[in-house]
Computed example of a mutant assay.
Amino acid sequence: MARTDSPRRWYLFDYGNVISTPPTPSDWEVLAEAAGVDRLQDPGSAYWRYRIAYDAGALTSDEYWSLVRGSRAGPPRAAWLDALDASQWSHLNPETLDVLEDLEARGEHLAVLSNMPAAMAAQFADASWTRLFRHLFFSSSLRLVKPSPAIFERVLAELRTAPWQVTFVDDSPANVAAARAVGLHGLLFDPSEDLWRLLAEGLAVSPASQD
């Protein structure tokens, strides 16, 4: 991709576990009770087993929640479960928000890239945090999921920028590695670390040719 003349970088942020905090145990209990399935938070549960397909837009809400439940979930129940699911992922990280608000106030270019099903993206459409971003990229609308290199290439094309002009922040090592392989400046998010320092140190070690 040809290098652009844009004077500013793009800051591309993941949503879950970066802008938001993880669901609480009580959140998972409420969702599990509504779904009729225990321990949905476990890595091997049906919630996660079919999640990539749901995030990719390959499953409807009814289809996904039916697979999670192991029995038919009609539209009303699926919509209810989607609402509970969105609610448990709606708790925002105040430290991340502080950084985002400062970046936005400085006129920096901000965007989101999240693996997120269409139902959840729709419920977040009017959320206050979305106003900080110039672009919102969700896997379900792109029909691509992280860590596929294709999703990063699609975002770069939409932003009309070069990979070295993008700083990408995500909590998944696989996603960060994939972004770096495409040429983005990938930073691994850790909620226990200072995000401002991570961004500053990350840019400090960027090759001069990519500033």
Rank of each mutant, 00 (worst) to 15 (best):
M120R: 14
L156G: 00
V182W: 11
R106D: 07
V112F: 05
S114W: 10
A181R: 15
H185A: 01
A105W: 15
D102S: 15
I151F: 11
H109Y: 06
E153C: 08
F124E: 00
A177W: 00
P117K: 12
R180L: 03
L187T: 01
P173S: 15
D190K: 11
R160D: 13
P117A: 13
V112G: 01
A157Q: 12
W129T: 01
V155A: 11
F133E: 05
V99M: 04
L97E: 05
P147T: 11
V182P: 01
E101M: 09
V112Y: 02
P163G: 08
V155T: 11
G107C: 05
A121I: 07
A179Y: 02
D171N: 14
Q123T: 01
A127T: 04
S141G: 10
I151C: 12
A157M: 07
L156T: 04
R131A: 08
M116A: 10
F138V: 14
A122H: 06
V169Q: 03
L136S: 10
S139F: 09
R134L: 06
P173R: 15
S148W: 10
M120Q: 13
E104G: 01
L156Q: 09
L136A: 09
G107L: 07
F189A: 00
N115D: 15
G186F: 03
D171V: 06
A178E: 00
S139E: 14
A125Q: 13
P147C: 09
V169E: 01
H109W: 10
A174H: 14
L132K: 03
P163Q: 11
G183F: 05
V145F: 08
F124G: 02
P163R: 11
L97H: 03
Q165V: 02
F168R: 01
V176S: 00
A162L: 08
A105R: 14
R106F: 02
L184D: 04
A162P: 00
N175V: 02
D98R: 15
L132Y: 05
L136N: 10
F124D: 00
P147W: 13
E158D: 13
A179V: 05
G186V: 02
A119M: 04
A179S: 11
L136Q: 14
G107D: 13
A118C: 07
R143I: 10
L188W: 05
A127L: 10
L184H: 07
H135Y: 13
T161Y: 04
E101S: 13
Q165A: 06
D170W: 01
A125V: 04
L156C: 07
S172Y: 01
E153V: 06
A105I: 07
L132T: 03
D171F: 06
T130Q: 15
D126C: 07
Q123M: 14
P173K: 15
V112K: 04
F152V: 07
V112W: 04
R154P: 03
D126E: 14
M120V: 11
R180S: 05
P163W: 06
R134Y: 01
A119C: 08
L136F: 06
E101V: 10
F124K: 05
A122K: 06
F133Y: 09
R134D: 12
A125E: 14
L187I: 11
F152N: 06
D170G: 01
G107E: 13
L144P: 02
S128H: 14
L184K: 05
L113H: 12
D126Y: 08
L110D: 00
L159H: 08
